[in-house]
Design a protein around this nucleic acid. Sequence first.
RNA 1: GGCGCGUUGGUCAAUCGGCUAAGACGCCUCCCUUUCACGGAGGAAUGACGGGUUCGACUCCCGUACGUGCUACCA
Length: 517
Amino acid sequence: MYYSLPLRPLMNHKKVRVRFAPSPTGGLHLGGVRTVLYNYLFARHHGGDFVLRIEDTDQSRFVSGAEEYIMQCLTWCGILPDESPANPGLYGPYRQSERKALYAQYALQLVEQGNAYFAFDTTEGLEAMRENYKTEHHNAQYDARTRGFMRNSLTLSKEELTDLLACNTPHVIRIKMPVDQTLVFTDMIRGKVSFDTNLVDDKVLLKADGTPTYHLAVVVDDYLMKITHAFRGEEWLPSAPVHLLLWQYLGWESEMPQWAHLPLILKPDGNGKLSKRDGDRLGFPVFAMDWTDPRSNEQTIGFCERGFLPEAFINMLAMLGWNSGMEQEIFSKDELIQHFSIARVHKGGAKFDYEKAKWYNHQYIQQTDNTRLVDLLQPFIADKILPTDACKLATVIGLVKERLHLLGEFWEQASFFFIRPETIDIAAIQAKWNENTKQFFVLLAQKFAASTDWNHDTIELVFNEAVAEAGIKKGEAMLPLRVMLVGGKFGPGVFAIAEQIGITETVARIEQAISLL
RNA sequence: GGCGCGUUGGUCAAUCGGCUAAGACGCCUCCCUUUCACGGAGGAAUGACGGGUUCGACUCCCGUACGUGCUACCA
């Protein structure tokens, strides 16, 4: 038997509605943010709604604070949902734990229709089955081959079943996978995908505690919330036939959303999908924002706290698995919305490249104006900069921004503007140091101290005069002056630095350096 | 093991049968800059493999290899 669902046009008369449905179990991963982003871009592009639904049915994995954390991340990224637990629309509640009562009726309906059944097997019973029926070529699973040997409503007599149910014997409801069917559906990214029903197991739909598994919950919720397009990670592809069948069995086939299974984000080295551990191991963030596990108190750094601009983070993520087809790589959020199309999402997984991510951030730092950078920089310098220095911050940022890839690098690039360097690279000065240069710097300090005008042009004029009077080469003095003021061989133009730190401090740093040589 | 999905430089990727295969990151060289960076110019580096189909294949088909995902009363 061959069964297929027709592909409906992408743009139909219904309003586009998409959802992001995370489990509140911990930090929000790069892949998660990208899924949100693609949902958001697709919804905005088509003038549709973007819904946040919290999939918190598994109490054993629930982590307190995780939902609030997810909202914070979305807020930081600037990709807020139109409907969410915090901002309900017409299709609430938006937490599965609050929708618990909804699901059982549908599972029961499936049992009545003969598409599902009660199963009373214990953990031990299931383990025994997996052990007994596995072969060299097949893993044993709960399916047409094995369900006839298990304790379920297909094998139990009517009386036994009634008794068991009457005694509230713990049980689950499983879908009854049909035999010898080929299920075909059209994925928006992958095209036609097909599955043999004989190879899919009888997934649990309703758990013994009465909560639905993901399989039942997505279908029911997507239906009730009128979701038209469903994006999720590629790891869900193997269970798509179960969901397809559920839409069909529940009689909602014509309402089924179009699926798009997104490619995975892989680790930069080696193989496998990117995990938090890879970030720890290779020294880059994996979560959008800092996450502290309430149980272990383990802290994990986020892109935000590492010094990424949200626009850069979003831009970088958008390009990881999607491409506009143009040469342009820097896209504002509005441009992303305008150009995004699901047809241009890649099929293959993409390795995450932190260097490229930093390059995006670097680009955004360059094009962000200094006053906004002053605000963004606050968390990174609040404990370092005196309030009296705050006014010159914008100027300093303008001077050093072109060498920043992360906001957190600001202090190492600019601390000398605010405080005297703790150590200076004496060796770099000594290479050019002799009695003549020493006399030059003594003279220079005197001239600086006597200056009335103090800006980079006048400073350079004074410097040139001193060079001429001392009879040395300018090249012999430039680098030592830099090292005296900065501490090392780096930083913006030396006269601009002198201007910013002021006459007194400039003279003091020169004199201190001379005394050390 | 089974099943699904994938495979263009080290990485992200363009190409929808005409390719002398874009561009970006990273790397290297040079210029600019008496520092570092920015900027500019250049360079090295790519179609997994084998069969078809075709006048012509990176593009289509098949096989193999490799990668990856799933194979829970987790999502």
